Amino acid sequence: MPATLRRAPSRGVEWEFEKLTIARDFSRNVVAKMLVDRAEHGGWELDRVRVAPDGTRRVVLRRKIIRMRPTLYAAD
């Protein structure tokens, strides 16, 4: 189950992070396809991958948070 966090590492840019733990049972190709799918359809990019001694992968994905600013609309 992914955990989602938010933080602002630099000025003006806010990132949303998602942590995944992937079991060692999945092949490298399956994991790559899953991450590519998340990147294409969810806007995520790879931030970090760590492989534990038991073979599980801990993956951190990130994406920019885009804030919409309200615009003033003057009705005539």
Rank of each mutant, 00 (worst) to 15 (best):
A32G: 04
N29H: 09
R6E: 15
R50W: 10
A8F: 04
R48M: 08
I22F: 04
T71L: 09
V36W: 03
L61W: 00
D47N: 06
L46Q: 02
M1I: 10
R50V: 15
D47V: 00
R63E: 01
I22W: 06
R62H: 05
G43K: 03
R48G: 03
T21I: 11
V36A: 13
A39N: 02
F17V: 00
N29R: 11
P70G: 10
Y73K: 13
M34Y: 12
A3E: 12
A74F: 14
A8Y: 01
L20C: 06
D54K: 07
M1Q: 07
V51E: 05
K64C: 14
F17N: 00
R69Y: 08
E18D: 02
A39Q: 04
V30D: 12
L46G: 02
A52H: 11
L72K: 13
R62M: 05
T56S: 14
R57Q: 15
V51M: 09
P70M: 08
V59A: 06
D37A: 11
A23V: 12
A32V: 10
S10K: 06
R57I: 10
M68G: 04
W44H: 02
M1A: 07
P70N: 11
A75Q: 09
A75R: 10
V59P: 03
Y73S: 12
V59S: 02
L35Q: 04
R69M: 06
V60L: 14
N29E: 13
T21H: 09
D54A: 10
M1K: 06
R11T: 15
T56M: 13
D47K: 00
A23L: 11
R24F: 12
D76C: 06
M68A: 08
W15P: 00
F17M: 00
P9K: 03
T56F: 13
R62E: 03
P53D: 13
A8T: 15
D54L: 05
R28S: 12
K64A: 15
V31Q: 05
L46Y: 01
L72N: 10
K33N: 15
L35C: 09
L35A: 07
A3L: 04
R69P: 04
F26L: 13
V36D: 11
S10E: 12
R62W: 01
G55V: 12
V36C: 06
K64F: 13
E14V: 14
L61R: 00
E40C: 08
L72P: 07
W44Y: 00
D37W: 06
W15D: 02
D37Y: 09
M68T: 12
V36I: 11
V36N: 12
E16V: 06
L72C: 06
H41S: 07
R50P: 02
L5D: 11
R24Y: 12
F26A: 12
E14W: 09
K19L: 05
M68H: 10
G42P: 01
A52E: 15
P2L: 00
R48D: 07
V59R: 07
